[in-house]
Amino acid sequence: MRYGVLAAVLGTLVSWSYGAQAQETLAAVKARGELLCGVGENFPGFFSPDSTGKYTGFDIDFCHAVAAAVLGDAGKVKFLPATPSARFPQLQSGQVDILSREVTDTFSRDTSLGLDFPIILFYDGHALMVPKSLGVKSAKDLDGANVCTQTGLSTEVIVADYFKSNGMTYKPVVFDARDQALAAFESGRCDVFSSDRSTLFAYRSSLANPDNFVVLDDTISKSLNGPTVRHGDNNWGDIVRWTGYVLIGAEEFGVTSKNVDEMKADANAPAEVRRMLGVEGDFGKMLGLPNDWGYQIIKSVGNYGEIYDRNLGSGAKVSIPREKTLNALWKNGGAMIAPSFQ
């Protein structure tokens, strides 16, 4: 991994010094005929390779959606692993067109790293996993705890802030690699393992005895996660943002991968749906895309709800409840809402 970072930085340096301006991401993707999508190594539910090496997950489906919108074929995506420390240089240098790996939007990332976060697709927050045998019911009982975390995420700062503001002491135990962090936590080196709640559910399922561990109800931070693109290429940012809004809007209007053909043919469908699917108006062209971009997205990956259920629903390997969270549709009290297609 150390070499991964070095390679990424070297690549960044080389591309920067060549002055290869990647302003025209859309043109580059079209010319290449393939979307380069940076994902993580393995995070069940969000991005993980199966036994044949094929990636599946929530963030994987989003890249398929972008490929469907831009190239008309959801399959034309190349997934490249982007480790926590190498991911930003990889995007900055143009080795990938988009990062789709649950990157958390923060002020300093948005303003000083040349990154843009076009849309939030998953609301998360840091939580704490403890062994049941610790007998702890609330995060407020954790004074003096040893906290295992993995570097490369915002976790270290969030944990420091939380313990400090609650007047508690703790000892950080920061690992470079996830496997070692989990092994140390499982062996009892730490009382607490902290990460995003979604991550903790995924990690817990990979422990030898998941039932011996519990994720506390306290949420100690907010994480607004979504795809990440380079700062400055506004057209590409618009494409990524509206791809997300098509997913959310389609769920709101009840457009699914199964009924999208009928909806498209239905002359009585709501005008917004007809514009979204490219039957009316030329919204696709305004983005520099084929006019049926919205149709292609829904036809190939389905709407936001379908993607969520497929990867994180009750039947999936990692199940993260959606009701009563910000990830629910706005009509159900959540934060998932798309601007009008007008």
Partner: peptide
């Protein structure tokens, strides 16, 4: 430098990993 594998905070872990990822200043940190 290999101690970052077992969570000992040496210069590699603190600067090459934590500071790098918190600030995103990869070239400077390395």
């Amino acid at each position: 430098a290999i101690v970052s594998a077992i969570a000992f905070p040496d210069v590699m872990l603190i600067i090459g990993k934590t500071v790098l990822t918190q600030t995103g200043q990869a070239i400077e940190s390395l």
